[in-house]
Design a protein around this nucleic acid. Sequence first.
RNA 1: CGAGAUGUGGCGCAGUCUGGUGAGCGCGCCGGUCUGGGGGACCGGAGGCCGCGGGUUCAAAUCCCGCCAUCUCGACCA
Length: 511
Amino acid sequence: MAKKPSDDQEQDGGKIGGKIATRADDYPQWYQDVIREAELAEPAKVVKGCMVIKPHGYAIWEKIQRDLDARFKATGHRNAYFPVLIPQSFITKEAEHVEGFAPELAVVTHAGGEQLEEPYVVRPTSETIIGYYFGKWISSYRDLPLLVNQWANVMRWEKRTRMFLRTTEFLWQEGHTAHASHEDAKDEVERMLNVYGDFAEQVMAMPVIRGIKTDSEKFAGALTSMCIEAMMQDGKALQAGTSHDLGQNFGRAFDVKFQTEGGGLDYVWQTSWGVSTRLVGGLIMTHSDDAGLVLPPRLAPIHAVIVPIYRKEEEHAAVMEAAERIKAALSEIDISPPRSRYRDFVEVVIDDRPLRPGAKFYEWERRGVPVRIELGPKDLAKGQVCVKMRVDSAAGSGKEFIPEADFIAGFRARLDTFQSELLRLARARMHARMVTIDTWDEFLAAFSGEQSTFAWCHWDGTRETEAAIKEKTKATIRCIPLPGQGPDPEPGTCVFSGKPSRQRVLIAKAY
RNA sequence: CGAGAUGUGGCGCAGUCUGGUGAGCGCGCCGGUCUGGGGGACCGGAGGCCGCGGGUUCAAAUCCCGCCAUCUCGACCA
């Protein structure tokens, strides 16, 4: 209801495209703006709580998928696919599972113009139907371990949705495995957690804390859940991946028995683990800045954009010829990650649209292209290119002039440097904000209002204390850190109750 | 699901209180000329069932009722 229509426009003059709120002013708005302006996705207004993932956003997901899929294959898993509809009765077979998911199920009651005898639920996750099939496939210890993964969509009727972070329908992968012993299952849970952790850090350049969920935060139906937690720029935590030890819970519920080596009969030990399109949200909130999206090269659909600069038509022709030459040379460069099982090559776009160069600069920055090449007559004359990296300091300065041959020869190293620089910056941010807190007053101060941080605190281990902390501050115990992921275990007293504690846990507000 | 806000061209908004003048503005978009190393200027254009459905009225973007969606906050969650 601002009376001055020009107010907002003053701020960013005649900017092309929409505006992006600053992180300091309004972090949630900034997040929405980046998604819109980078053309990653938009809300599916015609379907409540769902989103349309646009090509640029989906391309990032495809890169995530490709790398993870290779990691799953490398650890012995194979892909399979199970139905999107699950008989309602399946969901109810595991007590905790049904309790956890019942409130958010979408149920199909009619099909083909008739009411169904038994309703189907749209899968919120597939433990139950996969458990059922595991029962049919497994009869002997020789059938174990059984290691499958599924790339799929799932649906959870969430009360409150946020683009990429929590939508009614989302894309993910869910690994499901069955083992002959609890030890084997536990190894699997930890193995896949490490796959996620390595992926987050090496590919997404997103540092994470690996840990174990408290009982009240664990997966519905699991014995224990492990997780990776990432810190967003506003100090809140994002659960970026989970890996669950399901024990024999689903084996019992679906009667998945096998003959042991010794001739006995036992229920299988199962695991499940997953990451989702939520990772894209994490990516945005880890690296992006007030100018828009920032992408690590390993996930960037486009690595470099060439903006031709010219005045006369002869110049245009010459510049375009050089641009094509550079594009061809760059496109040859293999930027596959070390030891990867897929090939990745540099993707280059030449932006020859009839716009002012400056307009193009802003646009490609918003989309998160790591490298910008400005190519004009002066550069051709000197055999050089003008390069600007998509770093946080951004706008105006930071242009390098490099001989063309050197630039091409050093391109892969340039991307690698950028990649590791993003990880370094994100790590620095996370560590700068991490605190150890020992008093309740300090704790309240750290989490007052919308504030959040990663706080290492002693906790007495009780559900009551956990609930009380959450009730009073909105902060939750994100995880009990694995060795090396937090402060070394030392006894202390609970930050809330003052009772004895064995080690510090990670507390933060969470997305 | 509770509270609040919002819904007008692709984006951002004004207009709504107090119903009636051709539904406007900035940016973007299309055509043209000059331009071109960080959001250029000028000229000429296109684009709207004013979220949806009812109602009141001679007349509704505007008033009333219902619904839907989005955003923020809360309870629940990847």
